[in-house]
Write a protein that binds this DNA or RNA. Sequence first.
RNA 1: GCCCCCAUCGUCUAGAGGCCUAGGACAGCGGCCUUUCAAGCCGUCAACAGGGAUUCGAAUUCCCUUGGGGGCACCA
Length: 492
Amino acid sequence: MPEKPVRVRYAPSPTGYPHVGNIRTALFNWLYARHNKGSFIVRIEDTDTARTVDGAVEVIMDSLKWLGMDWDEGPDKPGKYGPYRQSERLEYYQKAAEKLLAQGDAYYCYCSSGRLEEMRSAQIARKEPPGYDRKCRDLSAEERAFARASCPRPVIRFKAPLEGSTSFCDVIRGEVSFENRTIDDFILLKADGYPTYHLASVVDDNAMDISHVMRAEEWISSTPKHVLLYRALGFNAPQFAHLPMILGPDRSKLSKRHGAVSITQYRDDGYLPEAMVNFLALLGWSLDDKTDIINIQTLVENFTLERIGKTAAVFNREKLEWMNGIYIRSLEVSELAKLAMPFLEQELPASVSRPVDEEYVKKVIPLVQERAKTIKEIPSLVYFFFTPDIEYPAELLIGKKMDVKTTLNALEKTLDILKESEEFDHDSLEHRLRPLAEELGLKAGQLFGAVRVAVTGVTVSPPLFETMMVMGRQACLERLEKAVEKLNCPEK
RNA sequence: GCCCCCAUCGUCUAGAGGCCUAGGACAGCGGCCUUUCAAGCCGUCAACAGGGAUUCGAAUUCCCUUGGGGGCACCA
């Protein structure tokens, strides 16, 4: 039996920016397509005209591109199954609805949203499951004509079976079964002529020859509706794979109140796409019992549905950070410098002249590469390399078990030594300053601490000698002199 | 309320009846290295939700309970 080619789709609705859950779904679909040399299709589900957000489609596509997911068919890549925006496919849904109407599998419903709302709240008050009471299901011709007069734009509902059960085989969860009496007479076509998700996705997945529907677990309870639709329409249903949910730290469905959930936020926060992909892949999937760092090619080579888990996963930002650090450290210096540029331009103080010198950035970057967890934090780690002046309180110069006198003396001696020679590389600094500490009866850390503050303005910095080297002899001497001044005239 | 799904360290997970004294990773803690901070290395803490059943043997199979999550829109 020849295997059907794998055709999977990512079907976002442009009602906002894609969050990590959506993107993880996209990633699994993409990985599955690439692993099986199949097709990855992007279909825009813009059937909710009221909630559609301008520019959302662009952000969605950008997000996919950023993460390295390419698509074979999509709104900007017409294939033989297009168009790929549901708003441009209304006729298909219309036709399907009419077929169901003609077959007696669907009916017009004239109920006002007001009545529906009242009905629902009454049901909830009575602790009954909310659902349509099927008032319009079996209207006579006269009743229909009468209703039509007051409601010229009826919706079309599916006539769900009242008895029996509907089941399907989920690739991840196995057999899932629902009692038909729990299935509502859901709406197929809305009053505005647009389809609901249920109709549209079934019609399109069929028309586009989708082999596997991979989507989040939240869809599992609407799947029997889809199965019923496939059947009524005479379509073969695809394979279903319901992916485990990604939850917030409070174990509830991810939403805005969980902070950064939009994938673009992570890009803006200085995360690398490689780290993001790696991390997301591990939310609900694993390679084996020990591998955490997996590049995208390895992911493609090894991605199978069998290794997808069933349990919802909490989005663990600390692990993402750790992983991002790993990827930052694996970058070439010039690459990291390039990635850091926009963040430096953005975050460096106004006193730093623009444009920022990329060649200088390349010299600075190696000093923070193993210290940064995100690219965004780089400016705060290196700003003193760029600012014409540094600000810090004089007391900062005085370290543990030090006082004004000893600190002043240490800095003056340091200046003397540094002025003696033009040499300013790591080794020469080391060979001259370390003995100085001993000579002054100070621990290396005490001397270097004072010099560090004098040169950088902070107590935490990259290794001192490398820092001084990159900063240059002239700048260092000037800053040391300023520090001495500060200690001499405390009011300064 | 009804329906569905799920259940291993705080978190992500490995585990398809004996390999489990339950493995890895993040976080935490301790240490080494060290001029600060990191990085790196070493070590440590920490879980099979509970109860039955099947079996010579169960984290792994079945049932119940409990817990968590999701769904129940003219939203997707």
